[in-house]
């Protein structure tokens, strides 16, 4: 609470953004291979279907024959115009591609972060109130262990057990194909059923983070004099815990929620591939596999923007939540 978050200005965010898109430009180009070796290849195979003239022609078409710095300048110029380029593999605007998939990913990410925050904070509060009891100890060690397991491993385990073994959930995809839904509700149910396991996989790994944060802040807050004041007033335990105490713990938690979107996005990329979920993560895997530079870059730019906006929002909200930060 007393630690002041360093609050960045808008200008600093611009500089960070420029640094990131620069890295974003160079990293794919440092990978071995190029788009045209893979353009017509099947996954896992490595033979070329293009003649060297074809490749030259294609490179010229996509501007890849120019020196790197010229490519870079035109990339930035286009980016500022809102043009993310044209996917070499999908033969489509990158922006259109990303936008068609992003809703799947974002809903997964946002839902998982909010859900893990809610569960984590609730359990953390309970744990802090009953600190050093066996309940606290079980919660503590259990959640710490869970938070150390990467989300894709949890995803795999869940996939094998709940989907493949128990057949409670569909194995893959975002919704059932070739089905006429009798009502809108049926469709939503189908989408939720598909989203459940990926969502859980992403949520479970994040609970520990919020649990620890909430538990630690609540422990120090519950020792504060104003909690005694509240008890002295004869208020109910529920009000003291979830109003007096939690309100003081909320600012860092809300900040953390926004900061978590970045990490959750990374997790989603992997989990989507486990469940073959039609989000940006799977799109990216395709992009990387085919060395589809514009696509990879485009996805990165969108993700970067999302994370930066979230960080900025975290700062802005922090100021609002704590009357002492002015």
């Amino acid at each position: 609470m007393k630690k002041k978050r360093k609050i960045l200005g808008f200008k600093q965010y611009i500089i960070i953004f420029l640094c990131i898109i620069t890295l974003n430009f160079f990293i794919p180009r440092l990978m071995p291979g190029d788009p045209f070796t893979f353009l017509s290849a099947e996954e896992g195979q490595d033979h070329t279907a293009f003649s060297s003239e074809d490749i030259e022609r294609h490179k010229k078409y996509y501007g890849l024959d120019q020196p790197l710095w010229q490519q870079y300048i035109s990339y930035v110029r286009n980016l500022l115009k809102g043009d993310l380029g044209y996917s070499i593999h999908y033969k489509e605007e990158v922006l259109t591609l990303v936008l068609s998939r992003i809703a799947w990913t974002l809903s997964l990410v946002i839902a998982s972060v909010l859900l893990s925050a809610a569960i984590g904070v609730f359990l953390g509060t309970i744990s802090a109130y009953y600190r050093n009891s066996s309940l606290d100890k079980i919660l503590y060690s259990g959640l710490i262990t869970l938070s150390e397991v990467p989300s894709f491993i949890i995803a795999l385990v869940m996939l094998f057990y709940f989907a493949a073994h128990l057949k409670l959930f569909p194995l893959s995809g975002g919704m059932s194909h070739f089905v006429d839904f009798s009502s809108r509700w049926e469709m939503i149910k189908d989408i939720l059923l598909h989203a459940f396991l990926p969502l859980m996989a992403l949520t479970i790994t994040r609970i520990g983070e919020f649990y620890l944060l909430a538990r630690n802040s609540m422990i120090s807050i519950l020792d504060k004099a104003y909690i005694k004041t509240a008890r002295g007033k004869g208020l109910k335990r529920r009000r003291i815990l979830f109003y007096h105490a939690l309100r003081n713990a909320i600012p860092p938690i809300v900040t953390r929620i926004f900061l978590s979107f970045g990490g959750a996005l990374g997790g989603a990329v992997l989990v989507e591939n486990v469940f073959n979920y039609p989000g940006v993560g799977r799109l990216m895997r395709q992009g990387v596999f085919f060395r589809d530079y514009p696509l990879i870059q485009g996805i990165f730019v969108v993700m970067t923007l999302f994370v930066l906006v979230m960080n900025y929002t975290a700062d802005a909200i922090y100021k609002k939540l704590d009357p002492r930060v002015s």
């Binding site: 504060k224 004099a225 104003y226 008890r231 002295g232 004869g234 208020l235 003081n248 002492r324």
Partner: peptide, 28 residues
Amino acid sequence: SEKALNKYRWRDIAIVFQNHLDVLNPVM
């Protein structure tokens, strides 16, 4: 019990705690 005691707290016996910044809830 705590619950029964709550009826007396502040209504019958109230306290002026020792004055320092933390004695009042900072966000209310």
